[in-house]
């Protein structure tokens, strides 16, 4: 397969996944804002959303203050914010367009249809109905696109690079969500592992579709350490880092080429670190430091994959 084709497939999947995760993060805040909370809490929650995506500076260049409406407009519609949902869906579509012949017609039409529909949404339309339905729609389109991918694409290289893109992006996003929320929700001085605000933590779990999973797995109170374990180390949790890295490693093994041995080794090492990690050790060493290291290694892996297979990041 052409390197450029693989590159487009990989980025198509990454942008679709990113759109979904942003919708999830915003959706949780949107729901939380319907509950009683102080002005400070509200601002902190929306500020955290920007921090997760590393977009605080970009936001403040455009808006004077953090309000729900401003953040929503910036994260959903802003043309200059390359990570706004609109721009993610557009980028997914542009990448798909560049390789439409490699996609099944169902997958192309799904991706194209998502973009065409996105153009119909406006901030004004949210004024009455709220953005909740929109977030549902984004998640639904992402589920659809993933389902169509798995249900119609030949199990060849093209599918592998799509999957690698999906899981690298998801690993990155899950790690960021956990990191920012963990810092925000764990009040200073409180012992990690103690009981915390039920609503806040359950909202975090919901943002990664893990609330019901948590109940099933732990059958117990929600504690920060268990939430971290679930999102980092549980291989059976579809949005955890451990699961994402397992998928990346497996798919990389199937596309290996003459120069990719070191990349494959690093992916395997990262996967093993997560598989054999213990949450007690991680919490003792500081969760934030751990996540920062994981994010750096994920990014390094992405760069190596680009160099070995795709269009190198220059």
């Amino acid at each position: 397969m052409l390197s450029r084709t693989a590159d487009h497939l990989y980025w198509m999947a990454r942008y679709m996944e990113r759109a979904e995760n942003i919708a999830r993060i915003l959706d949780v805040n949107h729901r939380m804002s319907m509950m009683p909370q102080s002005r400070i809490q509200e601002e902190q929650a929306w500020g955290a959303t920007l921090r997760i995506m590393g977009l605080e500076a970009a936001f403040h260049q455009r808006y004077a203050e953090i309000t729900p409406d401003n953040v929503l407009e910036f994260m959903i519609f802003d043309q200059d914010n390359h990570s706004s949902i609109r721009n993610c869906l557009r980028a997914a579509r542009e990448n798909a367009h560049a390789v439409r012949g490699t996609l099944t017609s169902e997958l192309w039409e799904t991706t194209n249809g998502t973009w065409l529909k996105m153009r119909d949404f406006t901030p004004e339309a949210f004024a009455d109905a709220g953005a909740g339905e929109f977030f549902e729609w984004v998640k639904y389109r992402s589920h659809l696109s993933r389902g169509v991918t798995i249900g119609t694409m030949l199990q060849d290289e093209a599918l592998r690079f799509i999957r690698i893109g999906t899981f690298l992006e998801r690993a990155d996003n899950t790690a960021r969500i956990l990191d920012v929320k963990y810092q925000l929700l764990l009040p200073a001085g409180e012992v990690e592992g103690g009981a915390a605000d039920y609503y806040q933590w359950s909202a975090l779990l919901r943002s990664v579709s893990a609330f019901e999973v948590y109940r099933k797995v732990y059958r117990d109170l929600i504690t920060p350490a268990r939430v971290a374990e679930l999102l980092l180390l549980r291989v059976d949790m579809p949005r955890s880092l451990a699961r994402c890295m397992k998928e990346v490693y497996t798919n990389l093994q199937r596309v290996r080429n003459a120069q990719s041995a070191e990349t494959e080794r690093q992916a395997g090492e990262l996967e093993a670190t997560l598989r054999f990690g213990r949450i007690d050790d991680i919490v003792r060493g500081g969760l934030h430091n751990y996540v920062i290291r994981m994010l750096a290694r994920t990014q390094e892996l992405g760069n190596r994959i680009a160099d070995d297979f795709l269009v190198p990041v220059s």
Binding site: M1, L2, S3, R4, G101, L310
Partner: peptide, 20 residues
């Protein structure tokens, strides 16, 4: 394959495309 110019190069009077 649907290629663009940047996907191909010439070496020893032979045309190649860059693949994975």
């Amino acid at each position: 394959e649907l290629v663009e110019g940047q996907d191909m190069f010439v070496k020893d009077e032979q045309v190649f495309m860059r693949t994975t």
